[in-house]
Design a protein around this nucleic acid. Structure first.
Lengths: 235, 235
DNA sequence: ACCTGAACACCGTTCAAGT
DNA sequence: ACCTGAACACCGTTCAAGT
């Protein structure tokens, strides 16, 4: 009851589902998805953990809501998932939309992991997909091809991909360590070592974390979009 | 000490890292990844939870080992990740290898989720990648293009993709429910509804879980492989 | 209507101790 | 060398109770 400065949490504003969801995003942004526990979220909101259950059924429902909020964020930034403008071709419209989604994923690196575990599809996500399908339909796709296209894109449709070789960000292996390691593996893994040697040679600064994620993302995206356009034009 | 039948666990065989890892795979296969706790794994092995820590540093290390074992399984099935045979083109070799990996993922549906969370790369996975790179190199790829290719494939290189619209397997929504739902959404989501109507119309049996995963996987895979071949042939 | 305290079942993990 | 018991810090969640 001290009238001291209320720095982070203002206990006066009553809780609401929206405040809970926004709080969850803040917690995950600051501490990673591991920090998003009911207890820590409650702390962040200046409340007891059990109060959250009044606004959200359980943690799964919380995560569902978080994803929905995030997609909503993309929608607002784009000024709504508007119907295709017919001002440009389907491919550039699709590219623009997906890269906008990607920008949000880059701002919330923990989001892909959460999205992957959802079993229900959020209403906002349905609107997003509807918009992508609209772009393809107006661009001359059959529903059948558009359906294949969604599968082919997979998570890339939402602006992220599952990399298999995620370089360990924690271990700051420098170029020298890498070279020693490569030397050792060269016998068993000639092609892998060959690739890494060539790439680190072309770019002296690069180490194991050598990849330009944005460039690789657009390379893969365009590869798929170009392939789809080929099929569309042929049929 | 009763000489009764030792049904599941034989406490006589001493624990070993291999037995722990194989046990973990059994537990996950039977009860899903949620069932894979140190305590339940210990039960399965007829041992106390704390005994596991003698053979495995912690749960993260356990999961690292599980992934390594799984890739090893692929390797054994294929008779080793042999160098390219030069008997066929790079594209069919790549396809064969990736579809073999996929078969293992289908047998262990929880595996992709575990693989995604790994931060270290397992030795077996390195051999797998080396083999893929070998196929591409011998097929006429530059290391630069092969590198792009690995990124473009992402998790598809290991036989799985992240779908965004995973139909809820639990809810057995029948065609009638789906139609009612579609009716309701038609105004806001015309393209999404249009696609689903057409697809459920073409195949009267199909519902929300309408997709042939294997067919969609190969469609996306071939789209990427064809695109890569185009680039390779042009340069 | 909205929030809380105490309690429960379940985690991963430590550490000293047993054989 | 290999395994265990007791204990700790931390989860999500329930339920009856407070205002």
């Amino acid at each position: 009851m001290t009238t001291g400065t209320e720095t982070t949490a203002q206990p006066r504003i009553p809780l609401s589902k929206e405040r809970v969801l926004r709080g969850a995003i803040v917690v995950a942004d600051q501490g990673g998805i591991g920090a998003l526990t009911m207890r820590k979220l409650a702390d962040q909101l200046g409340v007891e953990a059990m109060s959250l259950y009044y606004h959200v059924a359980n943690k799964e429902a919380l995560l569902d809501g978080v994803v929905d909020t995030l997609i909503h964020e993309i929608e607002d930034e784009m000024g709504g998932f508007t119907p295709p403008s017919a001002l440009s071709d389907w491919q550039t419209e699709m590219r623009t939309m997906i890269l906008a989604a990607r920008a949000t994923m880059v701002r919330h690196p923990w989001a892909p992991g959460v999205i992957e575990t959802r079993t229900a599809i959020s209403p906002a996500l349905m609107r997003y997909f509807n918009a992508l399908l609209g772009i393809m339909r107006e661009g001359g796709f059959s529903y059948d091809l558009a359906h294949h296209a969604m599968h082919a894109l997979g998570s890339r449709a939402l602006g992220f991909t599952q990399e298999l070789f995620e370089p360990d960000e924690a271990s700051e292996t420098d170029a020298q360590d890498v070279n020693a390691m490569l030397e050792q593996m060269a016998g068993e893994l000639p092609y892998l070592v060959g690739m890494m040697v060539e790439i680190t040679h072309d770019d002296p600064d690069s180490t194991l974390g050598w990849c330009d994620d944005q460039a690789e993302f657009t390379f893969g995206l365009d590869l798929i979009l170009d392939g789809l356009e080929d099929i569309r034009a042929r049929t």
